[in-house]
């Protein structure tokens, strides 16, 4: 599995170059612990999630609401409230379908724009990605995109780091219209030695 860990290392290093963070976690309990600490540290008042595994979402909900912070899974809220919640959320947590190591990119598909807006509107975006879904190179996406765009109407978002601009005197500023911070949680398996 050496190649695998090289890909993982590359992905993490590219993410960090972009000003994003990566956390490698093994178990659901670790993820819940990590995220509830994170949410508290950030002083968030409302967290919105979409596309997480059922069990994970319900455990997260328990842990986060127990601290007096609101937590909603988009699937569970009244559709009429969605827009308001999206506008107000401090942190958006989403799943990620794939990632590309050489560019540090996340690939997230969404069945509707509530899901897509979750990684656009809140100032902080957390993405949860299974380790085995990291591809080596950007060009590896061709077949997958052909299938995805050929058979469904899901919008595909490729996200590479936090929102940024260099429009004023080329000075890089993070967090223009999209999230100011991007955190990636990679599930399953630690870096092997060497």
């Amino acid at each position: 599995m050496k190649a695998d860990s090289d890909v993982l290392k590359r992905f993490i290093s590219e993410l960090e170059k972009l000003g994003a963070t990566a956390e490698l976690l093994e178990t659901r309990t670790q993820v819940v612990k990590h995220l509830s600490d994170f949410v508290r540290e950030k002083g968030a008042k409302m967290v919105l999630a979409y596309g997480l595994e059922r069990m994970l979402s319900s455990e997260l909900s328990k842990a986060i609401t127990s601290m007096g912070i609101s937590y909603f899974d988009i699937n569970d809220v009244d559709r009429r409230d969605l827009r308001k919640l999206l506008e107000r959320a401090d942190i958006g947590i989403t799943g990620a379908d794939l990632a590309v190591a050489e560019t540090g990119s996340l690939i997230i598909t969404s069945e509707n724009d509530a899901a897509r807006l979750l990684s656009c509107l809140p100032p902080i975006h957390v993405a949860i990605l299974p380790r085995e879904n990291i591809l080596d190179s950007f060009l590896d996406l061709a077949e997958w995109l052909r299938k995805m765009q050929g058979t469904s109407k899901r919008t595909v978002s490729v996200i590479t780091g936090p929102s940024r601009t260099a429009d004023i005197e080329l000075e890089i500023v993070l967090g223009v219209h999209g999230p100011c911070e991007l955190h990636v949680i990679i599930l399953g398996g630690a870096l092997s030695e060497g």
């Binding site: 560019t103 765009q149 919008t155 978002s157 490729v158 590479t160 929102s163 940024r164």
Partner: peptide
Amino acid sequence: NMATYVTILN
């Protein structure tokens, strides 16, 4: 290396 956002829609 890659732009921050690439949106693909049909």
